[in-house]
Write a protein that binds this DNA or RNA. Structure first.
Lengths: 330, 330
DNA sequence: CACATTGATGGTACCGGTTCCATAGAATTG
DNA sequence: CAATTCTATGGAACCGGTACCATCAATGTG
């Protein structure tokens, strides 16, 4: 490994001067600059980021805490963060919270030890007190999580509104018996989406029927179980709102297993708009979450926070993506 | 930030002793050890990994180069690497090659600057000469890429055999007119899978019909285009082998658009077994790629390479995952 | 009992950069 | 022309650790 000292020797200058041309931190005579630059290419020199970090106090890395790598929505956010960090000089470093609170705080500590310059927490359950503590030490941005007092440190969307709109879309097409496949019980997004569902029913003067709700867990398998249970219980429904796409896929499969056609007999609305559902048979109508854009916003936000600049987090909208899994009720 | 010096002062010992208890690098009197440990928790001390890295020459990070975050197969591999690195003290740091050769070598250089202790390249097109150079400097493991001379540095699977088995499965069920939806033209995996397809035909004495091949690009959209083109050309086929699951999904949608039933009229075999396809209607028969396991193996392999230990990369098999998209020909 | 060995610890040179301060010479000013 | 301000550079302290070497007391050995 060639070091800054080697470059200095080769260019017959001091370390300081080499550092100057590297960082353009002060004016350097054109001749000497050229000599240094030449030495750098000649010796194929790359500065040691560890040493830079130690000396400067900046590590040029952003810590990203994900919940569970492999889940499409969180992955898309992560992808957005990566894109947003591209060509900024900062690199992301990922750690996985594994859905455990303890693991989560453990990995965050590890990131702090790695001297990350900023932190992006995607979802997660870190207690608010810990967050407040963290915020003191490091620029921290939350994604897909709402916390009071973090309004301009948090990239999120209005799940309640989206739940309302999804349900309203079905109601407008004449559906009045709308089953809800509900996500993980205490999960805030799930709660919000259900709230929106209830508000839409209320708005349309449809009485809420608890037997139309199935408590699932965001997995595709739970979507098919939902249909089996609903059908087994004998309640009538002409439409299903699944709180994410995987459950919608499961529901669609469950329905076909019972010879029920989509959308002729039952309509389905999903949530997320993950890539695959545009190619389901039929293509799924769903609430599109702007996951990649959210990730990009988070990247911008954390970068601005590091530079201590003001940054207005853009408003991300969940939009209805109309496809073919929904039809007017017969 | 509290430093090792603060701990030393607090425990009334020298830096060296603190370092000793941290790394267990030599025996320390029990009393003094306890005093130090107590100081560490009292002051909530975390060693600065940058300083550790600079001093020790080890950064405890593994660089992971992905091709395109968001593609299910590569994501699963990445997930496997993360899992494999869990609780090893090493952290992964991801960079994205963005499918550009130049970007790829650029990001690799960035990783080297970050003093990563090892490198995992997932797929990619880095020229072999560059790889050889890299191998000199750093323990490097390839995933999903075969290079001569890298046999025990490369985690891969037999795509040709898998292509053969997929096709053979269809043949055994009586299919003789099997369309092939081919992946990106020069992509090695795609080439191998097609080779396997051809070998199976040959084995069964079926003459190869070029008009049954559609040149696609691994996207779902290209899968529906494939069906349109095939149907438009008027060739008969009773089965489709798609070289990945996304194209299989597209093909399935394309067929349904033409009123063709799956599997009654046409059977489909996919490739990858990404999570969603188990819940397609009908669930897709596909060649399961052990992506997560491959990632784990890569993690083990690079860790062993760092310690200069011998490691036999396990043999990963692609296995036929029978579901419901395939039926005996009528 | 003199001498070698062992155990526990402190001191210090580094790792490869950044950054502040000092300084020499050139350019500007009155 | 002396005094002042710039311009360009070198020197050295420092960032927070690691690891080697030195030291010193206690123990073991002939």
């Amino acid at each position: 490994m060639t070091t800054i000292q080697d470059i200095a020797k080769h260019a017959k200058v001091s370390k300081s001067t080499v550092s100057r041309v590297l960082n353009e931190s002060s004016v350097v005579n054109t001749e000497t600059r050229l000599a240094v630059e030449q030495a750098i290419t000649a010796l194929n020199y790359r500065p040691n980021l560890m040493a830079q970090s130690l000396a400067s106090g900046r590590s040029m890395t952003i810590g990203i805490v994900t919940q569970k790598i492999g889940s499409p929505f969180y992955d898309s956010i992560a992808q957005g963060v990566i894109e947003g960090l591209n060509n900024t000089g900062y690199s992301p470093i990922f750690v996985d919270g594994q859905l455990h609170h303890s693991t989560e705080s453990e990995v965050i500590k590890a990131l702090v030890g790695r001297q990350v310059d900023g932190l992006v927490l995607i979802g997660g359950r870190t207690p608010v007190t810990d967050l407040e503590q963290l915020k003191e030490k490091l620029p921290t941005i939350l994604v897909a999580r709402e916390v009071a007092g973090w309004e301009n440190r948090s990239v999120c969307v209005d799940n309640e509104l989206a739940g309302y709109e999804a349900t309203m879309h079905l109601i407008e097409l004449g559906h009045r018996a709308i089953a809800l496949i509900h996500g993980i019980k205490d999960q805030p997004d799930a709660i919000q989406r259900q709230k929106g569902y209830c508000r839409a029913l209320e708005k349309a003067n449809i009485v809420f029927n608890p037997s139309l709700i199935y408590q699932a867990d965001f997995s595709a398998q739970s979507g098919v179980l939902a249909i089996n249970s609903l059908l087994g219980s004998g309640v009538y429904f002409s439409a299903v709102f699944a709180e994410n796409d995987m459950m919608a896929m499961g529901a669609r499969l469950g329905l076909s297993r019972h010879g029920i056609r989509v959308p002729e007999d039952v309509s389905i609305v999903g949530f997320d708009d993950q890539a695959e559902v545009a190619f389901m048979t039929p293509p799924l109508t769903t609430m599109r979450q702007p996951a990649v854009e959210m990730g990009k916003s988070a990247a911008s936000a954390v970068l601005h926070a590091i530079r201590d600049e003001r940054f207005e987090i853009p408003n991300h909208l969940i939009e209805l993506q109309r496809r073919e899994s929904v039809a007017r009720v017969r």
